Computed example of a mutant assay.
Amino acid sequence: MSEETTGARGGAAPDLTVYYDGACPLCRAEIGHYTRCEGAERIAFVDVSSESADPGPDLSREAALARFHVRDAHGTLASGGAGFAALWRTLPRWRVAGRLAALPGVRTLLELAYRGFLPLRPALVRLWKRAARR
């Protein structure tokens, strides 16, 4: 991992690795919330916005920037709604949401909502930055 990695302290292998776009203020705010949650010390949060970030041989930096990805302790990647479900299942206070999100119908709805959000993200970031300047 790179110097942009936070979490999974104590040298132990993380239960989950989260790849996020640290250049996106929305992403930073959301990841900031998760890093403060109980259980976050078992998760590695990797900011892939840095040129030096290396998400691994099976995930390009570009793909990691374009869509939310997580990798479990066995090396399995999940993205989008399934990635959020995996993250939520790892955090004790989010565990119920993670279990609900893993249900077949809910998983589909979560993925559709995530895909609907992706095209809106650039406009939301512009609004966020404009509001921050005021």
Rank of each mutant, 00 (worst) to 15 (best):
L59G: 14
S79G: 15
R61A: 09
P14E: 10
R67W: 00
P92R: 02
S52D: 15
A13P: 14
R95L: 10
A12F: 04
G22K: 10
A23N: 13
D15N: 12
S60R: 09
R36V: 07
L65G: 04
L91F: 11
R36K: 13
V48G: 05
T17N: 06
A64D: 11
G11M: 03
Y34P: 02
H33E: 04
Y19T: 11
L65S: 04
V70N: 05
G11R: 05
W88M: 09
Y34S: 10
L87D: 01
A85V: 08
D54W: 08
W88A: 06
A44T: 01
L91D: 08
P57M: 04
D58S: 14
H69R: 07
A82W: 11
A53C: 05
E51N: 13
A86P: 13
R42E: 00
T76W: 07
E30V: 01
S79H: 15
V48D: 03
V46L: 08
D47F: 06
S52F: 12
S52N: 14
R36Y: 07
S79A: 15
G39I: 03
R93E: 14
A102S: 14
S50M: 11
G39C: 09
G22Y: 08
A101T: 01
L91P: 10
R61E: 09
A29E: 03
